[in-house]
C-alpha cells in the first residue's frame, strides 16, 4: 500500500547501492527530481534500465552512480549526443560503463513481460541486426504452434521502479495522463516502486473511466515533487524546456563544466518533496 513519504526518505528507504533501477517516462514525465535525490544520496554501482537514457541518466552516469546501462536509444533527443554517456563508454570517465543494448520494441516487451510475471518476452524483432551479436540477452525462441522463429529477451524485473505522474489522491492512487510510455509496466514489473507526483488532490478527477490509474496498493511510496519532471514536461502542468535540452549539449560536453553544473543545481540544492 502506497505510503506518503518525502522524496529523500523514499530514496533512502528503497534505493540501495548495487540495485537495478528503472526510471521511466518516454520523453514526458521523466523523474528528474528523484534522479537528483539519488545523486545527492550518492548511490553507487546501480544498474540503470531506461529506454531512452536522456539527460536524466546522462546526469546519473556523469555523477558516478551507474555500473551498467540497459537501454535502447542513448541520445539527446533532437539535439545530438549524450556526452556524459559517451565519455563513460569511450573513455571510462568517471567509471567504465557496461552496456546492454536493445531496441525500443524489445525494451517495451521486456517491461510488459515483467509486469505480467513472465520470465521473458517474445517479439518479431532484431531481424538481421548486429545487436544480436553484441548482446547475449537477445536470443531466439521457436513458436510451438507455427514454427516461426522469434526474438526473445529476458523480462525486466527491476529492484526499484521510479516514475513521475501528474497527481495522487489522498489514498495514494495515481493518475498518469498524456504520453504514458511504459510507466505502468515499470511500476508493475518492479519489486519496489516510487511514484513522484506534481500534487496531492482530494479527488483524482480522472477524465475517463479508461484513464491510466495506478492503484495505491500497487505502489510502495508516493512523494510530492512539484515540477519533478523538469526539464521534461508534465502534460497539463508545464511544458518541455526544449531550450535546456539544447543548452545541455554545451554543459555536458566538458567534465569540469558538468561538475560545476551538478554542484550548483543538484548537490547543493535542497531535497524536494515535503511529507504530506
Amino acid at each position: 500500500m502506497a505510503e506518503f513519504v518525502s522524496l529523500r526518505d523514499a530514496v533512502a528507504r528503497y534505493v540501495h547501492d548495487g540495485d537495478t533501477v528503472a526510471m521511466e517516462g518516454f520523453t514526458h514525465l521523466i523523474p528528474f527530481a528523484a534522479a537528483h535525490e539519488i545523486i545527492r544520496q550518492r548511490r553507487r554501482n546501480l544498474t540503470l534500465i531506461r529506454m531512452t537514457p536522456d539527460l536524466v541518466y546522462d546526469q546519473l552516469i556523469g555523477a558516478g552512480c551507474a555500473r551498467k546501462l540497459v537501454f535502447s536509444w542513448g541520445g539527446n533527443p533532437g539535439v545530438g549526443s549524450l556526452h556524459r554517456l559517451r565519455d563513460a563508454v569511450e573513455r571510462g570517465w568517471p567509471a567504465p560503463l557496461e552496456l546492454e543494448e536493445h531496441s525500443h520494441a524489445a525494451m517495451a516487451a521486456a517491461y510488459h513481460a515483467g509486469a505480467a510475471g513472465l520470465p521473458f518476452a517474445t517479439l518479431r524483432g532484431y531481424a538481421g541486426s548486429d545487436l544480436r551479436r553484441v548482446n547475449p540477452n537477445i536470443a531466439s525462441v521457436t513458436c510451438p504452434f507455427t514454427g516461426e522463429v522469434l526474438a526473445a529477451v529476458p523480462a525486466h524485473r527491476p529492484d526499484v521502479g521510479i516514475v513521475h505522474a501528474q497527481r495522487a489522491d489522498r489514498a495514494g492512487n495515481v493518475l498518469v495522463e498524456g504520453i504514458v510510455g511504459v510507466q505502468k509496466e515499470t511500476v508493475l514489473a518492479s519489486t519496489r516502486s516510487i511514484v513522484t507526483v506534481e500534487e496531492i488532490v482530494d479527488d483524482l478527477a480522472a477524465p475517463s473511466p479508461n484513464s491510466v490509474v495506478l492503484p495505491a496498493w500497487a505502489i510502495d511510496a508516493v512523494a510530492v515533487a512539484p515540477r519533478g519532471a523538469t526539464p521534461s514536461y508534465a502534460h497539463g502542468y508545464y511544458e518541455r524546456d526544449n531550450a535546456f535540452y539544447i543548452a545541455w549539449d554545451e554543459i555536458s560536453r566538458d567534465r569540469e563544466q558538468f561538475e560545476a553544473w551538478l554542484g550548483e543545481h543538484v548537490l547543493s540544492a535542497g531535497p524536494t518533496g515535503a511529507p504530506v
Binding site: 531512452t52 537501454f71 535502447s72 536509444w73 542513448g74 541520445g75 549526443s81 549524450l82 554517456l85 559517451r86 563508454v89 569511450e90 543494448e101 536493445h102 531496441s103 525500443h104 520494441a105 517479439l123 518479431r124 524483432g125 532484431y126 531481424a127 538481421g128 541486426s129 545487436l131 553484441v134
Partner: peptide
C-alpha cells in the same frame, strides 16, 4: 567494444526497418 564514436543506438529503428 572500443568505439571511435558511440552513437545513440537503435531506438525504434530495427523493428521499423523490419
Amino acid at each position: 567494444d572500443a568505439p571511435k564514436v558511440r552513437l545513440p543506438g537503435g531506438g525504434g529503428a530495427p523493428e521499423i526497418a523490419g
